[in-house]
Design a protein around this nucleic acid. Structure first.
Length: 949
RNA sequence: GCCCCCGUAGCCCAAUUGGCAGAGGCACACGACUCAAAAUCGUGCAAGUGUGAGUUCGAGUCUCACCGGGGGCACCA
């Protein structure tokens, strides 16, 4: 460790010196507002400054300010974005980069509960600590724009947007959201019929409200939701893991009917899928969103069953002729009506479940199914079910087919009932073979197919009735033909199904945005007028929610706000005189604040609007000239982990689209380009008892690991307190300096790749910066050691090649290779000038400038010492001169049958023939040819020559 | 089970997108400095690209199969 002991030269770039330099420049930047980006209009506009039209809006995913502070994994993305932002600032762009805090939500509250203090106190202390840590990294944030979702002035606008959504409905014809007042007008003037056909004027006040409320984009529904007793709150579908537990806390989740706020995200399902095409996002995330929305096109088909009709959804209506039985989900509402009194004559024993009557069989099966958890149903894929004793009629051919109930059909998807086509569906095949049901192939399997159900493409077979034949048609044509036939005969229609469900938007917790809603004496929800926003959280005695035994499915949520009776019971004048109202006691989910924060970054101090339209247009509006005619707009680069693929990223797109529909923003999408950073992982070590030992005290010998002499086992994964392998940026700054840390972190590999942390490797970055420093500053005296010497031809070529490469690397987020090129140039300069009196200024300056995006403090310091009074944050970034990039001569490797055998050097502008002639004249090649003629000679200009014998 | 991504020196990573496998860093060895060590500086060492086939004049790069690692989906009709 270099710690400035007496043997170290006084002006060496040690950690201590780096620390002084870093603090000085951090102060300078803060004092000068160096990273303040001007807006076109409003409080953050700058009158005297020309606003560059060339802008860049970059953003990191909103961090949650945790009590534990940062470890070295957290700032990976921040440093990457900062480096990119700094490069763009240096080439003249107006760059908006800041970082706010997603400070509401369960973790903040749980932490506050643990420490026994008010969530706001804890949250604010955590934010202050995180700001300190981030400042020490030298991130170029416009701190005026840093917001926290818990700021009252911020959540005022979260509530305002909620009311915008509340006061909107989805117009299916125009395919966009519109103000609810437009809908009311349609009912009033009769353009739109009321649900029961009565004139609008005859409906009571409450009836009208109920009609209107049923159309709102956020509405109260009494439907099954995910109740987590251990958390004391309901959670959204997106927050439930595949094995039926809460993502937060890993508590069991139960389906329970409750009155809850829902957001009508399903109205946007098509646009959320289709507009993915417009986005420059990783394919992986797009796929995850597509899967989650789960759009499938198909048909609803009605089968007569006695005096009832069973409606099924199918994506394969073309296989209708192959339907040999039907299945209802056990919970399907028609099950009771369809359960026969006794088994029909000759019922197969396998179908009865051993029961004497269908009634018993059905009751037994339903009871068993209800007892199975989601996980059991998933794990046990053995098909089970019982016959209801009833038959349905296949509308295409009049065949009577038996109706079963089975738990492989889920009530939650489609209509909760299917037509079973074992010939083309493996699940149906499995069920049919177990229960001895018929199998009819309606698609000709491909040659040599020896599987069971055939789900591939092929011509239809066995599919004719009196006025329809699908035989010979491909799957797509057959689908179209059968849907037309079904629609013509009234048996069904083409339709689209989605897996996506409406977003459950309420939480029974304390630390979140209160709903700006009150209830009148009829229990109807009423929006607070805008001038009563913000509605602030009340102080309560006990802000922790009531939690229950995690397994207690029968418990009921008890929101903490309900206990604040003085706040809940309120008298307000909402236009018709003072009246008593009751406030909503739910709070919004954590995702609410992060649905729109990019918009507030743009205009953080605007008190009139959530964002000024002109500022939004400048920073986020579509720019077809740069991004193509279909550019949806949005910020220019959004960097974060992959874990928010279907939560934050879906919700934020949804809100943004609502705001777009209502004319509040000009961009269709919030995030034009998304980039998923990798993670920094770490080794952890476990001793023979299974306990973790401090990773930084483990020693490696011959590939084995020892702690206090005892052998320990190496594990690889996350950094975590309990794993005793945390490395903090604070420790890195103290031991090496923030610039060294930044450089090392960026040089570890491409930003999108996960890689293991290795503290011992950091010294490489430190040595590089020390060498560079030494080229400019005399380590003994601190004097500048640069000269005005002319650069040699070799110097110029190396320099300009580096400039060209580094520019490209920075622009493409390849910070690891940019760093390597800088080291390469630095090593060259060291070799040539390190031992001389001085380094040519014409080499030192561009080197310093090119380093600045990665290591801003040392670059500023050297730039300053080189005699420049102003910051280099605004450039200039060196420009490569083409004339130094072209070589006079080129050395061609000569391959013989693909193996390099010799080399020739020819003029760079030599023609193919000249190169070939030179290659064939080479003595080693002549020897290899031994007088014979080559079969072929391939000359790749500028690359190589290959002689084929 | 299905789909996607990744396997290059002991380790982290490059490779102009089909053209000489090596840019950079760590580790290691040797040398310089030092009474010595650390730090620093210099020099050097190292894999034929997970395995096997194929396409090609030429494959780390393209195709197929397999092995290993990571991720997503999973009775969604």
């Amino acid at each position: 460790m270099t710690d400035g002991t007496e043997t170290t030269p006084a002006h060496r770039y040690t950690a201590a010196l780096a620390g002084q330099i870093e603090r000085r420049w951090q102060d300078y930047w803060a004092d000068h507002g160096t990273y303040h980006a001007p807006n076109p209009v409003g409080p953050l506009a700058e009158q005297d400054k020309q606003l560059p039209s060339d802008k860049l809006f970059v953003q990191d995913m909103f961090p949650y300010p945790s009590g534990g502070g940062l470890h070295v994994g957290h700032p990976l993305g921040y440093i990457g974005v900062d480096t990119f932002a700094r490069f763009n600032r240096m080439i003249g762009r107006n760059v908006l980069h800041t970082l706010g805090y997603d400070a509401f939500g369960l973790p903040a509250e749980q932490y506050a509960v643990q420490t026994g203090t008010h969530p706001r106190t804890t949250t604010e202390a955590n934010i202050a600590n995180m700001r300190r840590q981030l400042r020490a990294l030298g991130l170029g944030h416009d701190e005026r724009r840093s917001i926290a979702t818990t700021d009252v002035e911020y959540y005022r606008w979260t509530q305002w947007i909620f009311l915008q959504i509340f006061n909107s409905y989805y117009d299916e014809k125009q395919d966009r959201a519109r103000p609810i007042a437009d809908l009311e007008k349609e009912y009033e003037d009769g353009t739109r019929a009321t649900p029961d056909g009565r004139p609008w004027s005859e409906l009571s006040r409450v009836e009208r409200r109920e009609v209107i409320d049923s159309h709102r984009l956020v509405y109260i529904s009494d439907a099954p939701v995910n109740w987590a007793p251990g958390l004391g709150t309901v959670v959204a579908n997106e927050e439930v893991t595949p094995d039926g537990r809460s993502e937060r806390g890993n508590f069991p989740v139960f389906r329970k009917n409750l009155r809850q706020w829902m957001m009508r995200i399903t109205s946007y399902a098509d646009r959320l899928v289709d507009d993915l095409e417009l986005l420059d996002w990783p394919e992986q995330i797009k796929t995850m969103q597509r899967n989650w929305i789960g759009r499938s096109r198909g048909a609803n088909v009605r089968f007569a069953a006695g005096d009832a009709h069973i409606e099924v959804f199918t994506t394969r209506p073309d296989t209708l002729f192959g339907a040999t039985y039907m299945v209802l989900a056990p919970e399907h509402p028609l099950v009771e009506r369809l359960t026969a009194n006794e088994w029909p004559e000759g019922t197969d024993e396998r179908w009865t479940g051993g029961a004497a009557t269908p009634g018993e069989a059905v009751a037994d099966y339903r009871r068993e199914a209800s007892r199975k958890s989601e996980l059991d149903r998933q794990e046990n894929k053995e098909k089970t079910g019982v016959f209801t004793g009833s038959f349905a009629v296949n509308p295409v051919n009049g065949e009577r087919i038996p109706v079963f109930i089975a738990d492989y059909v889920l009530m939650g998807y489609g209509t909760g009932a299917i037509m079973a086509v074992p010939g083309q569906d493996q699940r149906d095949w499995d069920f049919a073979t177990k229960f001895g049901l018929g199998i009819i192939r309606t698609v000709q399997p491909s040659e040599g197919f020896d599987g069971e159900a055939f789900t591939g493409e092929g011509p239809a077979i066995n599919s004719t009735n009196e006025d329809l034949s699908l035989n010979g048609m491909g799957v797509e044509d057959a689908k179209k033909a059968i849907i037309a036939w079904l629609e013509e005969h009234g048996h069904g229609e083409g339709t689209v199904q989605y897996k996506l469900r409406d977003w459950l938007f309420a939480r029974q917790r304390y630390w979140g945005e209160p709903f700006p809603i009150v209830y009148d004496e009829d229990g109807l929800p009423i929006a607070l007028p805008e001038d009563q926003l913000p509605l602030e959280l009340p102080d309560v005695e006990d802000y922790s929610p009531k939690t229950f035994d995690p397994e207690d499915a029968d418990s009921e949520p008890q929101p903490p706000l309900a206990k604040a009776t003085d706040w809940v019971e309120v008298t307000l004048d909402l236009g018709d005189g003072p009246k008593k109202y009751r406030r909503d006691t739910n709070v919004m989910p954590q995702w609410a604040g992060s649905c729109w924060y990019q918009l507030r970054y743009i205009d953080p101090t605007n008190t009139e609007r959530f964002v000024d339209p002109e500022n939004e247009k400048y920073w986020m509006g579509p720019r077809p000239a740069e991004h193509g005619v279909n550019d949806p707009g949005g910020l220019d680069l959004y960097v974060g982990g992959v874990e928010h693929a279907v939560l934050h990223l879906l919700y934020a797109r949804f809100w943004h689209k609502v705001l777009f529909d209502l004319g509040h923003v000009s961009s269709k999408e919030p995030y034009r380009k998304l980039f998923n950073q990798g993670y920094i992982q770490a080794y952890a070590y476990v001793d023979s008892r299974g306990f973790y030992v401090p990773a930084d005290e483990v020693e490696e010998t011959d590939g084995r690991f020892f702690y206090n002499g005892e052998e320990v086992r190496q594990e690889y994964g996350k950094m975590g307190k309990s794993l005793k392998n945390i490395v903090t940026p604070d420790a890195m700054a103290e031991n090496y300096g923030a610039d060294t840390f930044r450089f090392y972190e960026m040089s570890m590999g491409p930003l999108e790749i996960s890689r293991p942390w290795a503290t011992k490797d950091v010294v490489g970055a430190q040595r590089f910066l020390q060498r560079l420093w030494r080229l400019v500053v005399d380590e003994e005296t601190g004097a500048l050691r640069v000269s005005d010497a002319e650069l040699t031809d070799d110097d110029l070529r190396r320099l300009h090649k580096t400039i060209a490469g580094v520019r490209e690397d920075y622009a493409e987020l390849r910070f690891n290779t940019a760093g390597a090129k800088l080291i390469e140039l630095n090593n060259y300069v060291t070799k040539v000038y390190g031992a001389t009196q001085a380094t040519p200024r014409a080499l030192a300056e561009p080197l310093v400038l090119m380093l600045a995006p990665l290591c801003p403090h040392i670059a500023e310091e050297l730039w300053h010492r080189l005699g420049h009074p102003d910051t280099l944050v605004y450039g200039p970034f060196p420009q490569a001169d083409e004339k130094y990039l072209v070589e006079d001569t080129v050395e061609y490797p000569i391959q013989v049958n693909g193996k390099v055998r010799s080399r020739v050097t020819v003029a760079a502008d030599a023609g193919k023939d000249d190169v070939q002639a030179a290659a064939l004249a080479d003595e080693k090649i002549v020897a290899l040819l031994a007088g014979g003629e080559p079969r072929k000679v391939i000359v790749v200009p500028g690359r190589l020559v290959n002689v084929v014998l």
